[in-house]
Nucleic acid binder design. Sequence first.
DNA 1: AGTCCCATGTAATCCGTTACATGATTTA
DNA 2: TAAATCATGTAACGGATTACATGGGACT
Lengths: 179, 179
Amino acid sequence: MAQKNLLPYILLGLIENEPMTGYDLKKEFETEIGEFWSVKHSQIYLELKRLVANGDIESNTGYFGNKIEKTYYKITPQGTKSLEGWKYSYEDQLAINKDEFVLKLYFIKDKKDPRLKELLNEQSHLHKKKLEHLNSRLKEVFPNKKIIDNNYGHYLILNHAIKREMEYVSWLEDAILSI
Amino acid sequence: MAQKNLLPYILLGLIENEPMTGYDLKKEFETEIGEFWSVKHSQIYLELKRLVANGDIESNTGYFGNKIEKTYYKITPQGTKSLEGWKYSYEDQLAINKDEFVLKLYFIKDKKDPRLKELLNEQSHLHKKKLEHLNSRLKEVFPNKKIIDNNYGHYLILNHAIKREMEYVSWLEDAILSI
DNA sequence: AGTCCCATGTAATCCGTTACATGATTTA
DNA sequence: TAAATCATGTAACGGATTACATGGGACT
């Protein structure tokens, strides 16, 4: 494979709970899962066709109480098996996490570079905003223990994202003070 | 552009210090910059041609005291300008950092899922190994203050990578204890 | 009447990985 | 002399983004 294509598993994972249309799936990437993954609708519709051709999902087109024709997709037993296989598969090595800002810094050699502080400040601002956003998401999405225990993976990764941003900000602040 | 292509800037940044061959550049991705970025040699050679066509670098083919013909590339004033422009450019939003493990967790709903702990343990092991590796890199690459001050960006991002792995491990350990 | 959102696609383009390919030199 | 490394490419394929495209419904 050219690049590891995880979209099939995402779509299966989302459809598993309840049948969905391509548009519904697109919407998911604007809210919940959009915090952790991004994809364009053009890719979704193509992948859905592939999944149908592969027998992982089934489509059902019609008017479902609405005035607009929609196509709903539901997962097949084969699709469920494929999804489970991926969910519990072992990763033998960590992928490199490509961060443009980190790359830029690699090429800034001189500690006394006059624009270094400004760059660090800009990033700090971005990450502080992100951190704020994630903190409010946590409160919003997980108001009580029951919701936490029934969406535990999501709860864990949201907490991880928050800790990651805290680390990012603290690193940048330390860096700013060090120069 | 399909995906943001940062390779031109990486190549310019590496060539800026001293003229290099395609093979030299490939080697860089096996050591220093390989900690933060990955690329295949096929892409390097293609990108070098594009940079030459674009006037950002100049090529010089011949026998340089060796028995093998090599092609050295050096940066042009235009290339330097392009590199500087990128290095000090402002990023207005943060890119999503796609992590397969995080994605998997999103689809693990139940806190009592019997395989959750095992998955977390596996990841913890990987990140601990990574952390060890980064710590030894830091000692190896930055033995004294002068080297630090003259490669400050690299020093900063290596420290960031270490703190990031520490956060990852601590998050996983907390998660393991919580279930 | 116009704008926004719903809903679903295709096409073009470029990026990234894998595979194919070749030949010389150094090292074990 | 065989294997590893040096050195440089091309080709095929698939993933990801952008742009093009269409039509209906809801809201102002």
